[in-house]
Structure formats: C-alpha cells, structure tokens
C-alpha cells in the first residue's frame, strides 16, 4: 500500500517517467489477454462471480454501443399500412388459417375445354408399358401371355366388379388400389386427406387414364366439399383437380397438390 501521495508528489515535481505512456499502453494491450487467461482458469465460486460480473459488463457495453449508433440505425417504417385488413373480431384470431375464395368457375371451365393445364409438374418421365404391366402367364401349361397385371397404384371406382377371368385382360391388384389422397392447398399451405373422385388424365397414355393408373404427374379429381369452398354464385364446390407429386407405388400413399 502506498503511504501518502508520494507518487503524485513525484509526478508533480519531476513529471512522468519517460516510458510511462508506453508502459501504460502495453499494459492496456495485455489486459484482454490477462482477463482471458483468468477467465479460462478460474473455477468454483470465483468463476461464478466473475461470469456474473462479465455478463453485466457486456450488457452495459452493448447498450452503450446501441445508443451511439442510434442515429445511423435504420428505423422501421411505421407509416406503411399492411394489406389484408380484418375486422376487430378476427384480429385476435390471426393464427387461424384464412382461406381465400379461389374457385373461378369460368377459368376452370375454359381450361377444361382446352385440355391444357398449368400444372406444377409440367413434364414427367416416360413410363413404358413394360414397366407398368407385368405379363401374367395363363393356361394349363402357362404358355399364354395375354393377361396383364398393373404394377402401379390405381384408382378403381366405387362398386367395381372384376370381370370373369377369361375376359379380364388387366388385373388391378387390391393392394395397389387407393381411395384417398393427401392434397396440399398451395395458398393455404395446408394438407387435407381427401377422397379421390376419379382419374382425370394420366399424361403417359390414354390407356392408363382409362385404367385409372396413378403415377407421378397424373391429374386426379378430388372431393373438396369438406374444405367449404364456394363459387362466385354461392354454390359449394365439391370436385377439384389435383396433380400427383410423388411416386405412389413406392411410397404407399398419394401426395398431390391442388390446382387452383
């Protein structure tokens, strides 16, 4: 402990040591290293106390920096009014999904007529008949080969009865028949499990369309009555088209995206 103010007195009399400021600078430069070494080695209660102190110091520092930068910071523009106003009774229910009225009867009809669709999957890989059908050997000696087994997912309408074996050229196995599809609404980004109404078009071939084969890119019609969509005239929409986005025969389910 220094006794009396002899340092100050000496400085008053003789001025600073010639290397005082140099030493001061170096000490300050070492400070960070020293603290770091201390922080890395300190343990126990001292560590706790030290960390607490350092934490508050850092907060203080950040606050000061922020204050200094206040003018150069970019402020959020509050004057812009967001679109999509809702009444007061819906303000606290923002989290709930807000469906749009999306069905446009005229547009849909025109598209249907042209047979052209802007679809999410415009191109699909060609799938040959050899991949879709497996030849089933028939006859007592198993030498006939006119029968085919469909190896892809199919949709078979309600109340379908298989033909007698003699006339059944295409077999659609029970295990690959599907009744429902997981349909994603692109605007709501919500997915619903909806019953399939029919296969509208399989881009591979009209034969597949006829058989109800569902491959990637197939347009299916789904029953959307539970979504509660309404046309301009106030009628409930119940059938809408969707395009299959996965390979159902691999995945065991049909994922599709609704065509809006």
């Amino acid at each position: 402990m220094p006794q009396n103010e002899y340092i100050e007195q000496a400085r008053k009399r003789h001025g600073y040591r010639m290397d005082h400021f140099e030493r001061l600078r170096k000490r300050e430069a070492r400070e960070g290293h020293n603290r770091s070494e201390y922080a890395q080695n300190v343990t126990g209660l001292k560590a706790k106390l030290y960390n607490k102190k350092r934490h508050t110091e850092k907060i203080e520092m950040k606050k000061t920096i922020k204050m200094h930068q206040e003018r150069s910071n970019k402020q959020k523009d509050d004057s812009a009014v967001p679109q999509g106003a809702v009444p007061a009774y819906l303000l606290d229910r923002e989290g709930q999904s807000r469906a749009k009225v999306l069905s446009n009867m005229v547009k849909q009809k025109r598209k249907e007529k042209a047979g052209k669709w802007d679809v999410p999957l415009p191109k699909v890989r060609g799938i040959g008949e050899s991949e879709v059908f497996r030849v089933v050997k028939t006859g007592k000696r198993k030498i006939k080969g006119w029968k085919r087994m469909v190896t892809k997912a199919t949709f078979v309408g309600e109340g379908f009865t298989r033909k007698p074996p003699k006339y059944e050229r295409f077999i659609r196995p029970m295990g690959l028949r599907f009744k429902k599809a997981h349909v994603t609404h692109p605007e709501l980004s919500a997915t619903f499990c909806l019953p399939i109404v029919g296969v509208k078009k399989n881009p591979q071939s009209p034969l597949y369309t006829q058989l109800g084969v569902i491959t990637k890119g197939t347009i299916i019609e789904v029953n959307v009555s539970e979504l509660g969509l309404v046309t301009q005239n106030g009628k409930v929409v119940w059938g809408k088209y969707a395009q299959v986005t996965n390979n159902p025969e691999n995945d065991g389910c049909i994922n599709a995206v609704l065509l809006v």
Binding site: V86, P87, V101, G234, K235
Partner: peptide
Amino acid sequence: FDLPGHADEVFA
C-alpha cells in the same frame, strides 16, 4: 333468399 355476389368473405 340466398344472396351471392361478393367475391370474398363478407365481414360486415
């Protein structure tokens, strides 16, 4: 009577 005509949700 049913009064269709609005293109979106009727708020008020």
